[in-house]
Design a protein around this nucleic acid. Sequence first.
DNA 1: GATGAGCGA
Length: 303
Amino acid sequence: MAVVDGRQPLQQQNHPNKIRWGELEEDDADYYAYLLPPPVVIGPDENGVKKVIEYKFNDDGEKVKVTTTSRTRKLARARLSKKALERRKWPKFGDAVHEEVGNRLTMISTEEIILERPRAPGSKAEEATAPDALATVAKAGAVLMVCRICHKKGDHWTAQCPYKDLAAATADTFVDGPPSSESAAAPAPGARSGTYVPPGMRAGATSAGERSLPDRRRNDENSVRVTNLSEDTREPDLLELFRTFGPISRVYVAVDQKTGVSRGFGFVNFVSRGDAERAINKLNGYGYDNLILRVEWATPRAN
DNA sequence: GATGAGCGA
């Protein structure tokens, strides 16, 4: 007979269960319970206090006695603080006014509350969450949802775009690689108005294709400095935020070379100055990632 | 509070 750790089983006939010794496996929870006296429950007494005495093996294989004292729920309620009892007498408000909720302390509100979850410094940005059933359907692959304002995929429709009001001025002319008044006035060489210009040939397009980040090093004109960025805001995030105003030639976020942590500021270069100006006017003071952005003209970099 | 890289003639 296998006895683990040299322990001897209790006398079988003393145990209330009629389990035969050999029927229990070592990895069975009952295996060890079988070696211990059954738990004893005392009470509850007149104060609702209940004691449970159990025997267990600790991690070192030693037998220990565990006493748990608890108070039954009903009597615990009677011990609520005076303040808590007082609060229960408050008149109902909000949705609770219209419902018979009695003494219930909480109820489910139908009010829509948008919470922006703060992130611990250095933690990873969360995956985009689907805010509604439609988005869930889209994510399941039935529809590919792409916002025409900010181009974010599978998150929301154009009408629900968080940047909708920001982009109101550009939204109507916004086709992949949005032509602004200025950039439209300066089409790619050889292009006549009304002719199709492939995305890669449009003003502001990068050679690597429109899905890539704008070129890091070309064009220091129309440079906009963005400060007070949260440290997990990266270049793609800035691009998402600023591209609604017009074609962007470069996005840069200053990063500590040693730690790789964002230094909290960056630069966005617009193809056209007018777009940059509108971005500054609209986004300066804009709440982003729980911080208030500062967006202003950048002074040219000292070389 | 704050103004960005690195290549190699």
